[in-house]
Nucleic acid binder design. Sequence first.
DNA 1: GCGACAG
DNA 2: ATCTTGTCGC
Length: 230
Amino acid sequence: MEILRTPADWPRTETEARAAQETLRARLVRDEAGPAPGTVPLTGVDVAYDDARDLVAAAAVVLDPGGRTVLGRATAVGRVAFPYVPGLLAFRELPAVLAALDRLPVAPGVVVCDGYGVAHPRRFGLAAHLGVLTGLPVFGVAKNPFLFTYEAPGEERGARAPLLDGAEEVGAALRTRTGVKPVYVSAGHRVTLDTACAHTLALTPRYRLPETTRRADALCRAALKEAVGN
DNA sequence: GCGACAG
DNA sequence: ATCTTGTCGC
């Protein structure tokens, strides 16, 4: 197994990481609606860890515009590049994710992250960061509301409510399955919140989480096991 | 000042 | 994220 090295200029301290977010945020593009559902491939990315061995495994899975067929997949294993610090998740996950995306045999289209985009203390979460670094359209779908608030959306699939940071709308609590806890969608780079919600609904015909992240999650776990041996 | 807090 | 079996339910 080949273990990837993280970029030499990757932040090493929390102070450096926050400064990097403030700088990169200026390059975030938020005025593009982004490709409509059904017109481009969707790529899910996710990461799994083995803290004891200091390893991280990332996976990228490309689904066809209809969301039924896998067009391509790739994995990458590396050393953990940053500790988990709320608000700085991107620095922990992205080196491996970027390596996996580089290894894809096909164009990724729109990328779906397991986490937040602009729903972030400095409006620069994982999905926004990945978008700026790659130039690709990227949005985020998280499983928890982090430090944001919202009024419960209707019970039916498709119902949504604003995800708020005080009075500012930073995303949406979107019900992908009737009667099931919502997911938390936010825009990232070159994709608006409405387009992100439309893609999220298209990717959840059966489960709460997008098919992209479900597939990427399974693949990165398998890659980690493979790397560790077993 | 302390704790909580995406994964 | 991760530690972890069976079990209730559509």
